[in-house]
């Protein structure tokens, strides 16, 4: 399970992207993180595998503290976290197979990586996973020959080839059309169920978040302002997440967790302008 406690990120410019966010993701649940642009969703996910270095707080994956790890230890920890990106981040000029197999890079020697020599098991599994994400027969295509939806499937295949303990998914659908978005979300939740791993998705389409998630978390201005089951995400909650409205006295439905410290500060508009 992933357990994040009081995660903070202050950029050297003084921008506070995360002001102490805590979150647990367990079992095989799908957790959607929603919030306006600049709320800190991407920063949160990137701090978990330390593509962005957090400035405070702790991240634990199955009891292993990630934040203090150095070079080799961090690389070993990253092998357990599959990441899927908004812009797919495939190696455009390599084949689909090389992209998928790159998920195993944490396990092969540099020399074998250079020669594109991977274990037979990995290759067999790569074929299997390509079949599973619906890209059978595309292994020798170059990534830049594929459509957006297909590329995102390659990205997913790369992440599952890692045999991760958790999938971190950063805006998987914002470069895709609505129909493809649904197909990608279906695939992600299916994998979570079949492989029995949790998925942390940050997403800005609220309807997709509600439809696919087991739990919804709302971020605003670097703070968690909502956490609860999808049905609890009512207009009041949305208003609070997206427009920073004060919660009317006693109106909060059960399950809603408001950020403990000073909600008044979270009600500023400047967060909307900040890019993650």
């Amino acid at each position: 399970m992933l357990s994040v406690t009081d995660l903070q990120k202050t950029y050297s410019s003084g921008d506070e992207a995360l002001k102490g966010v805590s979150l647990d993701v367990t079992g095989n649940e799908t957790v959607s993180m929603i919030g306006p642009s600049g709320a800190g969703k991407s920063t949160f996910i990137r701090c978990v595998n330390r593509l962005t270095e957090p400035t405070g707080g702790s991240v634990e994956l199955d009891g292993l503290e990630i934040t203090g790890l150095s070079g080799g230890e961090l690389r070993d920890a990253r092998r357990d976290m599959g990441m899927i990106f908004q812009e797919y981040n495939l190696i455009e000029r390599l084949t689909v197979m090389e992209n998928v197999l790159s998920g195993r890079l944490g396990y092969v020697s540099t020399w074998d990586a250079f020669r594109r020599k991977f274990a037979g098991d990995d290759i067999a599994r790569a074929y299997e996973v390509l079949d599973r994400v619906g890209l059978k027969g595309h292994e020798d295509n170059r990534a830049d020959e594929l459509s957006g939806g297909q590329r995102q499937r390659v990205g997913i295949a790369r992440a599952i080839l890692q045999r991760p303990k958790i999938l971190l998914v950063d805006e998987p659908t914002s470069s895709l059309d609505p129909e493809t978005s649904r197909a990608v979300m279906d695939l992600l939740t299916e994998i979570a169920a079949e492989d029995d791993i949790p998925v942390l998705i940050n997403i800005h389409e609220v309807d997709l978040a509600v439809e696919y998630a087991d739990r919804v978390v709302g971020l605003r201005d670097g703070q968690k302002v909502f956490e609860g089951d999808p049905p609890d995400l009512d207009e009041t909650a949305k208003g609070q997440i997206y427009r920073g409205e004060e919660i009317p006295e006693g109106a909060g439905p059960a399950g809603k967790v408001v950020a403990a410290d000073a909600p008044g500060e979270a009600v500023t508009e400047e967060g909307d302008l900040r890019s993650t």
Binding site: I123, A124, E128
Partner: peptide, 11 residues
Amino acid sequence: TEQQPRREWSR
């Protein structure tokens, strides 16, 4: 799977 997947691939 209906058949044993291939265990080799070359670029």
